[in-house]
Amino acid sequence: MLTGLFNYWIVIILMMAGLYIVMSSGHLVKKIIGLNIFQTSVFIFFISMGNVAGGTAPILKDGFNVFSNPLPHVLILTAIVVGVATTALGLAISVRVYEAYGTVEEDEITAKDRDNRHRETSVSTVTQGAATEDVQEIQS
């Protein structure tokens, strides 16, 4: 049992480490690194499932009869490239966040958001008050 499931357990450890980074770190780029680790562990999981004992790489050649399952390979191959594209998108978003807030630490961003919302709500109550006054003036 130990050797049979060892790969999957390693995958789970890696996956959980990635998840832990995503949850515990406040830095957006580090979160992306965590997501990448999570992603890679899923890749390893798929490829482990596709492996056949005594098989070889799925390239047809005389003299080889046992191959690994090519389907997980295809899925993961494209997933890797899509993964890097989405990683780049995430990085682009965090760069924009940095330009807007001057930081990519989650708690600082939330703090700034809260400040802004306070300011906005106070401003909007003032304008609402002004609007009702206008309406009253028109009615009178």
């Binding site: 690194i33 482990s48 492996n51 390239i59 191959f67």
Partner: peptide, 23 residues
């Protein structure tokens, strides 16, 4: 080692190359 040569190829080019540079 798990016989996924195409995937290994992609991961080496993408993971160790492109995504590291982007980050």
């Amino acid at each position: 080692t798990l016989d996924a040569v195409d995937v290994a190829f992609t991961e080496a080019a993408v993971g160790a190359g492109a995504s590291t540079i982007f980050i």
